[in-house]
Design a protein around this nucleic acid. Sequence first.
DNA 1: AATTCCGGAGAACAGTTGTTAACTGCATGG
DNA 2: CCATGCAGTTAACAACTGTTCTCCGGAATT
Lengths: 209, 209
Amino acid sequence: MSHTLGVRQAQKQRTRQALLDAALELLEEQSLSSLGLREVTRAVGVAPTAFYRHFPSTADLGVALVEEALGRLHPMIRTTVTPDGDSGERIARAVELIEGHVREYPSHVRFIARERHGGVQPVRAAIQEQLGRFTEEVRAELAKDPQSAGWHDDDLLMLAGLYVDQMLITASQFLETLDAPDGERRRVAETATRRLRLISVGRRHWTAA
Amino acid sequence: MSHTLGVRQAQKQRTRQALLDAALELLEEQSLSSLGLREVTRAVGVAPTAFYRHFPSTADLGVALVEEALGRLHPMIRTTVTPDGDSGERIARAVELIEGHVREYPSHVRFIARERHGGVQPVRAAIQEQLGRFTEEVRAELAKDPQSAGWHDDDLLMLAGLYVDQMLITASQFLETLDAPDGERRRVAETATRRLRLISVGRRHWTAA
DNA sequence: AATTCCGGAGAACAGTTGTTAACTGCATGG
DNA sequence: CCATGCAGTTAACAACTGTTCTCCGGAATT
């Protein structure tokens, strides 16, 4: 079934990935709406017109980047919220996982944070869609937790959204500490942990009115 | 004391404001990092070179917009968190206030949400600074509340940050419902209310360990 | 009343942008 | 082995960008 794709398509996907990588790097210091197609091809070392063989416009390049940054993140999210261990352990695990992800894929995180409210509508929509899926998956995971007994589905969705937003905020705060002294990073981790803890307390004492 | 400034400076501030207004409108469909100086002057009906009489670059224009959007918002924030009435009333009041502000200054809200993580560093810094001031002011207000007895200052700051971030999230969600059916807007208000309520519950049962 | 100041206009610059068309060379499928 | 397909190239286009320098007219100052 895994049809090893020919020399031709392989090379195509290679330059496509090179375009994505170059764009992601250029986007560290600007927004997608100011990213020029020539700028990207120049960085890759390819003719401007070659761009069109892969993307109709830079907006579509952006949508592809959303897939790359968030598409394969769903399993990780799922296992993070899964009800293993006590509340404190789960929170610590989640914060560490976020910190690790930011350290490993900083430009992905930056791109998502930047373009979530950015100037390119299709990209905003793609991000919203992915985040919506995250929220739904978190809700489903929360529903499994015995702690959620008696909770309305609306409230579970509310809580899931709160978690997802908090995840993004934390990630973007870690991002800002990437080339800062270690103490800053510790402080962000500490504050994020306490935020989650407070939400956790609220959750425990929530009355499903 | 109110020295009515001469015809000259009055006219200058007029075109300056016109530049700000035009920029804000153009920024509804793009990011600051792609906003051209000529684009702005063209919209105002003024020569490109006139721009330099007011701002060294579009980045500085952006910083000025941050002041305009957030600078005069501090009193409002302060009174929102002030401990009057019971928790439910305060939450309802806050959500209504956010909704009203978004309806009145949608482009301000959009600009802040967009450029908070945008591609122009000085603007990001200006926004961060204003939000930091908000957080500190909220912390100070929370400290007055008898409910905060025994709270560490760190925890109060954590809670204040949580409120400020939640405020921004809610504002940006209202923004997306601006030209949507009324039901959507009601749903956003409802979810925001419940989020705040959950935080409120967490706050009430917080143990200042 | 004479002089300085200064917001804005005008023209020109080198460099950039997205998009088009027609091409070349090579992997692919018959 | 030959014909087709197609990723990438080359050249050219009109339009646009930020920035400089020189100038103008009228308010502000003396």
